[in-house]
């Protein structure tokens, strides 16, 4: 299986939500390092939030990802600084392979955010008050469909909606389908090689 999906224009994501509360949820929680000893991303979904979801003996602790009301959820709702810590793309890979296709939060760690964009997963922010409302709404009615609309810059739920933010560059990449950056970067092949040749430390001072 290919390690990637094909780039598409991501203008909106619709789906049911799942709430994971808490600030500073780090990438070691999202995917513990001991599950990263494979040279493939396939199968990572099995270990997403492993230590938060299960005791060392494998007994479920009642994490939202194991709550049957959230089964099939595609929009993850989080608080502040989600994805802090390591640069491991394994974190958004694990979430994406579990089924998450968009994330709404108060804020994101920078490398995690970039990794999400590179996988076509919009990670958008909303105000603290709006995230709180959205979390409450999803927990009250997990069956409802949420819509994360990058074009309109809104997230909507049954009976509510809120403004969302995303840096222009990343939003543009998602909306025009250039989030899989490699092809875009390679369009400037000649300029890249010219740049390399001109750098003092490449040409030997």
């Amino acid at each position: 299986m290919s390690e990637r999906v094909t780039a598409e224009r991501v203008t909106s994501r619709r789906g049911r939500g799942v709430v994971v509360r808490g600030n500073d949820i780090d990438t070691d929680q999202i995917i513990p390092a001991r599950y990263m000893t494979s040279i493939r991303f396939a199968g990572l979904e099995e270990f997403v939030f492993r230590d938060v979801r299960f005791t060392s003996d494998g007994v479920p602790k009642g994490h939202p990802f194991d709550d049957r009301r959230y089964r099939g959820a595609e929009v993850l709702v989080v608080n502040q600084n989600f994805g802090c810590g390591s640069s491991r793309e394994h974190a958004p890979q694990a979430l994406g392979r579990w089924g998450i296709r968009a994330i709404v939060g108060e804020s994101f760690a920078e490398i995690f955010f970039g990794n999400c964009v590179a996988l076509g997963i919009p990670a958008v922010t909303a105000s603290r008050a709006d995230v709180a409302k959205l979390m409450d709404a999803v927990e009250l009615d997990p069956a409802q469909e949420l819509a994360v609309d990058l074009a309109a810059r809104t997230v909507t739920w049954r009976g509510g909606s809120a403004a969302i933010r995303m840096p222009d560059g990343a939003r543009g990449q998602l909306m025009d389908g250039s989030w899989d950056a490699m092809r875009t970067l390679l369009e400037a092949r000649d300029q890249i090689l010219a740049k390399a040749a001109a750098l003092p430390y490449v040409k030997g001072f």
């Binding site: 991303f41 640069s87 958004p92 990794n115 590179a118 950056a181 400037a188």
Partner: peptide, 13 residues
């Protein structure tokens, strides 16, 4: 630091 898709981007470009 960068993720793996970006490692690919640097390798390629």
């Amino acid at each position: 630091g960068i993720g793996t898709s970006q490692v690919r981007d640097v390798l390629a470009s």
